[in-house]
Design a protein around this nucleic acid. Structure first.
Lengths: 127, 127
DNA sequence: TTGACATATGCCGATATCAGCATATGATTC
DNA sequence: GAATCATATGCTGATATCGGCATATGTCAA
Protein backbone atom coordinates (compact mmCIF):
# COMPACT_ATOMS: atom_id res chain seq x y z
CA UNK A 1 0.00 0.00 0.00
CA UNK A 2 0.92 3.60 -0.24
CA UNK A 3 -0.59 6.85 0.78
CA UNK A 4 -4.10 6.38 2.01
CA UNK A 5 -6.61 8.21 -0.16
CA UNK A 6 -7.26 11.14 2.08
CA UNK A 7 -9.26 13.30 -0.26
CA UNK A 8 -12.95 13.43 0.49
CA UNK A 9 -12.02 14.03 4.08
CA UNK A 10 -12.36 17.50 5.53
CA UNK A 11 -9.11 17.41 7.44
CA UNK A 12 -7.26 16.79 4.24
CA UNK A 13 -9.21 19.38 2.30
CA UNK A 14 -8.17 22.14 4.65
CA UNK A 15 -4.58 20.94 4.80
CA UNK A 16 -4.00 22.86 1.57
CA UNK A 17 -3.18 26.50 2.29
CA UNK A 18 -4.81 27.72 -0.89
CA UNK A 19 -8.02 25.95 -0.06
CA UNK A 20 -8.06 27.60 3.34
CA UNK A 21 -7.63 30.93 1.62
CA UNK A 22 -10.57 30.17 -0.59
CA UNK A 23 -12.74 29.43 2.41
CA UNK A 24 -11.71 32.67 4.07
CA UNK A 25 -12.47 34.55 0.91
CA UNK A 26 -15.88 32.97 0.50
CA UNK A 27 -16.73 33.74 4.07
CA UNK A 28 -17.15 37.33 2.99
CA UNK A 29 -19.58 36.34 0.31
CA UNK A 30 -20.08 34.07 -2.63
CA UNK A 31 -17.89 34.43 -5.68
CA UNK A 32 -17.62 33.02 -9.17
CA UNK A 33 -14.57 30.99 -10.07
CA UNK A 34 -12.73 33.70 -11.93
CA UNK A 35 -13.08 36.14 -9.06
CA UNK A 36 -11.65 33.58 -6.67
CA UNK A 37 -8.76 32.92 -8.99
CA UNK A 38 -7.99 36.60 -9.39
CA UNK A 39 -8.37 37.45 -5.74
CA UNK A 40 -5.95 34.75 -4.68
CA UNK A 41 -3.57 34.97 -7.60
CA UNK A 42 -4.14 31.58 -9.05
CA UNK A 43 -5.07 30.31 -12.46
CA UNK A 44 -8.65 29.60 -13.36
CA UNK A 45 -8.14 25.84 -13.65
CA UNK A 46 -6.31 25.93 -10.36
CA UNK A 47 -9.17 27.64 -8.61
CA UNK A 48 -11.62 25.31 -10.27
CA UNK A 49 -9.81 22.24 -9.03
CA UNK A 50 -9.50 23.44 -5.49
CA UNK A 51 -13.15 24.39 -5.51
CA UNK A 52 -13.95 20.93 -6.72
CA UNK A 53 -12.20 19.36 -3.75
CA UNK A 54 -14.00 21.70 -1.40
CA UNK A 55 -17.28 20.86 -3.06
CA UNK A 56 -16.68 17.14 -2.82
CA UNK A 57 -16.17 17.33 0.91
CA UNK A 58 -19.18 19.61 1.20
CA UNK A 59 -17.45 22.78 2.31
CA UNK A 60 -18.77 24.83 -0.57
CA UNK A 61 -21.88 24.83 -2.69
CA UNK A 62 -22.21 26.03 -6.24
CA UNK A 63 -25.03 27.74 -8.02
CA UNK A 64 -25.45 28.63 -11.64
CA UNK A 65 -25.79 32.32 -12.42
CA UNK A 66 -25.78 32.98 -16.11
CA UNK A 67 -22.60 31.70 -17.57
CA UNK A 68 -21.00 31.96 -14.22
CA UNK A 69 -20.90 29.42 -11.48
CA UNK A 70 -21.01 31.05 -8.11
CA UNK A 71 -19.47 29.31 -5.15
CA UNK A 72 -20.67 29.88 -1.62
CA UNK A 73 -19.30 28.55 1.59
CA UNK A 74 -21.04 25.83 3.56
CA UNK A 75 -18.76 25.53 6.52
CA UNK A 76 -20.84 23.12 8.53
CA UNK A 77 -18.27 20.50 7.69
CA UNK A 78 -15.71 22.44 9.69
CA UNK A 79 -17.60 21.83 12.86
CA UNK A 80 -16.16 18.36 13.45
CA UNK A 81 -12.68 19.78 13.07
CA UNK A 82 -13.47 22.52 15.51
CA UNK A 83 -14.83 20.03 17.99
CA UNK A 84 -12.01 17.57 17.54
CA UNK A 85 -9.39 20.19 18.26
CA UNK A 86 -11.55 21.48 21.08
CA UNK A 87 -11.09 18.11 22.74
CA UNK A 88 -7.54 19.17 23.44
CA UNK A 89 -8.41 22.52 24.91
CA UNK A 90 -7.16 21.59 28.34
CA UNK A 91 -3.66 21.52 26.96
CA UNK A 92 -3.58 25.18 26.18
CA UNK A 93 -5.77 26.47 29.00
CA UNK A 94 -3.64 25.14 31.81
CA UNK A 95 -0.23 26.64 32.10
CA UNK A 96 1.80 23.97 30.50
CA UNK A 97 4.31 23.46 33.26
CA UNK A 98 6.40 20.62 32.15
CA UNK A 99 6.75 19.06 35.56
CA UNK A 100 3.05 19.22 36.31
CA UNK A 101 2.23 17.63 33.03
CA UNK A 102 4.80 14.98 33.64
CA UNK A 103 3.39 13.99 36.99
CA UNK A 104 -0.17 14.14 35.83
CA UNK A 105 0.50 12.04 32.80
CA UNK A 106 2.48 9.59 34.81
CA UNK A 107 -0.51 9.01 37.05
CA UNK A 108 -2.89 8.54 34.18
CA UNK A 109 -0.54 6.31 32.34
CA UNK A 110 0.08 4.14 35.35
CA UNK A 111 -3.60 3.52 35.69
CA UNK A 112 -4.22 2.62 32.09
CA UNK A 113 -1.16 0.83 31.04
CA UNK A 114 1.41 -0.72 33.26
CA UNK A 115 2.79 -3.33 30.97
CA UNK A 116 5.65 -1.13 29.89
CA UNK A 117 5.82 0.94 33.05
CA UNK A 118 6.78 -2.03 35.12
CA UNK A 119 10.34 -2.21 33.88
CA UNK A 120 10.91 1.53 34.02
CA UNK A 121 9.64 1.79 37.57
CA UNK A 122 11.97 -0.58 39.27
CA UNK A 123 15.06 1.28 38.20
CA UNK A 124 13.56 4.59 39.18
CA UNK A 125 12.81 7.76 37.25
CA UNK A 126 15.32 10.44 36.58
CA UNK A 127 14.49 14.17 36.98
CA UNK B 1 6.18 22.92 -9.42
CA UNK B 2 4.37 20.11 -7.76
CA UNK B 3 2.80 19.46 -4.43
CA UNK B 4 3.71 22.19 -2.03
CA UNK B 5 5.74 20.92 0.90
CA UNK B 6 3.03 20.90 3.49
CA UNK B 7 4.78 18.99 6.21
CA UNK B 8 5.88 21.08 9.15
CA UNK B 9 2.44 22.61 9.14
CA UNK B 10 -0.07 21.55 11.77
CA UNK B 11 -3.00 21.36 9.40
CA UNK B 12 -1.14 18.84 7.34
CA UNK B 13 0.10 16.88 10.32
CA UNK B 14 -3.44 16.21 11.49
CA UNK B 15 -4.67 15.41 8.01
CA UNK B 16 -3.37 11.89 8.57
CA UNK B 17 -5.92 9.74 10.37
CA UNK B 18 -3.29 7.70 12.15
CA UNK B 19 -1.62 10.78 13.49
CA UNK B 20 -4.93 11.96 14.84
CA UNK B 21 -5.32 8.63 16.55
CA UNK B 22 -1.91 9.02 18.11
CA UNK B 23 -2.87 12.39 19.51
CA UNK B 24 -6.06 10.99 20.95
CA UNK B 25 -4.13 8.16 22.49
CA UNK B 26 -1.53 10.44 24.01
CA UNK B 27 -4.22 12.65 25.45
CA UNK B 28 -4.78 9.93 28.01
CA UNK B 29 -1.15 9.92 28.98
CA UNK B 30 2.35 9.67 27.65
CA UNK B 31 3.49 6.50 25.98
CA UNK B 32 6.67 5.00 24.58
CA UNK B 33 6.84 4.25 20.88
CA UNK B 34 6.19 0.57 21.12
CA UNK B 35 3.08 1.07 23.21
CA UNK B 36 1.73 3.51 20.64
CA UNK B 37 2.43 1.10 17.84
CA UNK B 38 0.75 -1.75 19.64
CA UNK B 39 -2.26 0.22 20.76
CA UNK B 40 -2.99 1.45 17.27
CA UNK B 41 -1.98 -1.66 15.38
CA UNK B 42 0.91 -0.24 13.48
CA UNK B 43 4.51 -1.22 13.07
CA UNK B 44 7.21 0.26 15.24
CA UNK B 45 8.85 2.17 12.38
CA UNK B 46 5.44 3.39 11.34
CA UNK B 47 4.70 4.78 14.75
CA UNK B 48 8.15 6.27 14.95
CA UNK B 49 7.72 8.12 11.69
CA UNK B 50 4.34 9.51 12.53
CA UNK B 51 5.64 10.60 15.90
CA UNK B 52 8.48 12.31 14.16
CA UNK B 53 6.12 14.38 12.06
CA UNK B 54 4.10 15.27 15.13
CA UNK B 55 7.28 16.22 16.94
CA UNK B 56 8.46 18.40 14.08
CA UNK B 57 5.29 20.44 14.13
CA UNK B 58 5.45 20.61 17.91
CA UNK B 59 2.39 18.56 18.74
CA UNK B 60 4.29 16.05 20.85
CA UNK B 61 7.36 16.13 23.02
CA UNK B 62 9.68 13.29 23.75
CA UNK B 63 11.59 12.41 26.82
CA UNK B 64 14.18 9.76 27.43
CA UNK B 65 13.31 7.15 30.02
CA UNK B 66 15.86 4.42 30.14
CA UNK B 67 16.05 2.78 26.79
CA UNK B 68 12.62 4.00 26.03
CA UNK B 69 11.59 7.26 24.50
CA UNK B 70 8.33 8.44 25.93
CA UNK B 71 6.11 10.69 23.88
CA UNK B 72 3.72 13.16 25.45
CA UNK B 73 1.22 15.41 23.83
CA UNK B 74 1.72 19.13 23.55
CA UNK B 75 -1.46 20.16 21.88
CA UNK B 76 -0.96 23.88 22.07
CA UNK B 77 -0.31 23.78 18.37
CA UNK B 78 -3.91 22.72 17.83
CA UNK B 79 -5.16 25.99 19.14
CA UNK B 80 -4.70 27.85 15.84
CA UNK B 81 -6.68 25.14 14.08
CA UNK B 82 -9.41 25.39 16.65
CA UNK B 83 -9.54 29.13 16.28
CA UNK B 84 -9.40 29.09 12.53
CA UNK B 85 -12.34 26.74 12.27
CA UNK B 86 -14.08 28.75 14.97
CA UNK B 87 -14.00 31.69 12.61
CA UNK B 88 -16.68 29.90 10.63
CA UNK B 89 -18.91 29.17 13.56
CA UNK B 90 -21.71 31.40 12.30
CA UNK B 91 -22.21 28.99 9.43
CA UNK B 92 -23.32 26.16 11.62
CA UNK B 93 -25.08 28.17 14.31
CA UNK B 94 -27.52 29.91 12.05
CA UNK B 95 -30.05 27.73 10.36
CA UNK B 96 -28.52 27.43 6.98
CA UNK B 97 -31.51 28.48 4.93
CA UNK B 98 -30.32 28.59 1.43
CA UNK B 99 -32.39 31.62 0.47
CA UNK B 100 -31.30 33.65 3.45
CA UNK B 101 -27.71 32.85 2.78
CA UNK B 102 -28.15 33.71 -0.83
CA UNK B 103 -29.58 37.13 -0.17
CA UNK B 104 -27.16 37.90 2.57
CA UNK B 105 -24.17 36.90 0.53
CA UNK B 106 -25.44 38.78 -2.46
CA UNK B 107 -25.49 41.98 -0.44
CA UNK B 108 -22.01 41.50 0.90
CA UNK B 109 -20.67 40.53 -2.43
CA UNK B 110 -22.24 43.50 -4.16
CA UNK B 111 -20.59 45.80 -1.72
CA UNK B 112 -17.13 44.32 -2.03
CA UNK B 113 -16.87 43.34 -5.61
CA UNK B 114 -18.94 44.55 -8.45
CA UNK B 115 -16.64 43.94 -11.33
CA UNK B 116 -18.17 40.58 -12.11
CA UNK B 117 -21.60 41.37 -10.80
CA UNK B 118 -22.13 44.07 -13.38
CA UNK B 119 -22.70 41.72 -16.28
CA UNK B 120 -24.82 39.30 -14.32
CA UNK B 121 -27.06 41.99 -12.96
CA UNK B 122 -28.38 43.46 -16.16
CA UNK B 123 -29.81 40.23 -17.44
CA UNK B 124 -31.33 39.33 -14.12
CA UNK B 125 -30.76 36.42 -11.83
CA UNK B 126 -32.32 33.05 -12.23
CA UNK B 127 -32.97 30.76 -9.39
C1' DT C 1 -25.43 28.78 -35.87
C1' DT C 2 -21.58 31.33 -34.59
C1' DG C 3 -18.86 33.79 -31.51
C1' DA C 4 -17.58 35.20 -26.94
C1' DC C 5 -17.17 34.27 -22.32
C1' DA C 6 -16.95 31.10 -18.04
C1' DT C 7 -15.82 26.91 -16.15
C1' DA C 8 -14.39 22.07 -15.99
C1' DT C 9 -11.52 18.33 -17.36
C1' DG C 10 -7.56 15.78 -19.11
C1' DC C 11 -2.80 15.16 -19.43
C1' DC C 12 1.92 15.83 -17.90
C1' DG C 13 5.98 16.27 -14.98
C1' DA C 14 7.82 16.94 -10.47
C1' DT C 15 7.48 15.76 -6.00
C1' DA C 16 5.49 14.32 -1.56
C1' DT C 17 3.62 10.76 0.95
C1' DC C 18 2.85 6.34 3.08
C1' DA C 19 3.63 1.31 4.21
C1' DG C 20 6.81 -2.26 4.73
C1' DC C 21 11.08 -4.10 5.40
C1' DA C 22 15.91 -4.23 6.71
C1' DT C 23 19.21 -2.16 9.34
C1' DA C 24 21.61 1.47 11.87
C1' DT C 25 21.87 3.98 16.21
C1' DG C 26 21.28 4.30 21.14
C1' DA C 27 20.86 2.69 25.88
C1' DT C 28 21.04 -0.77 29.44
C1' DT C 29 22.58 -4.88 31.71
C1' DC C 30 25.73 -8.50 32.36
C1' DG D 1 32.96 -5.38 25.43
C1' DA D 2 28.83 -8.45 24.16
C1' DA D 3 24.13 -9.31 24.20
C1' DT D 4 19.64 -7.34 24.38
C1' DC D 5 16.00 -4.28 24.04
C1' DA D 6 13.97 0.24 22.10
C1' DT D 7 13.88 3.46 18.66
C1' DA D 8 15.24 5.84 14.42
C1' DT D 9 16.61 5.97 9.71
C1' DG D 10 17.19 4.51 4.96
C1' DC D 11 15.43 2.43 1.00
C1' DT D 12 11.83 0.94 -2.24
C1' DG D 13 7.48 0.67 -4.60
C1' DA D 14 2.87 2.34 -5.22
C1' DT D 15 0.16 6.15 -5.36
C1' DA D 16 -1.61 10.90 -4.45
C1' DT D 17 -1.04 15.52 -5.09
C1' DC D 18 -0.26 19.96 -7.18
C1' DG D 19 0.73 23.36 -10.88
C1' DG D 20 0.54 24.46 -15.66
C1' DC D 21 -1.13 24.07 -20.03
C1' DA D 22 -4.32 22.89 -23.65
C1' DT D 23 -8.81 21.94 -24.58
C1' DA D 24 -13.49 20.26 -23.84
C1' DT D 25 -18.01 21.55 -22.11
C1' DG D 26 -21.52 24.82 -21.08
C1' DT D 27 -24.04 29.22 -21.42
C1' DC D 28 -25.56 33.24 -23.35
C1' DA D 29 -26.11 36.82 -27.09
C1' DA D 30 -26.49 38.34 -31.68
Amino acid sequence: MARAATTSDVFNAIAEPQRRQILVLLRAGEQPVTAVAEALGMTQPGASKHLRVLREVGLVRDRKAGKQRVYAIDARGLRPVHEWTGGFEQFWNESFDRLDAYVQNLEQTRRRNDRWQRQGKKRGRKR
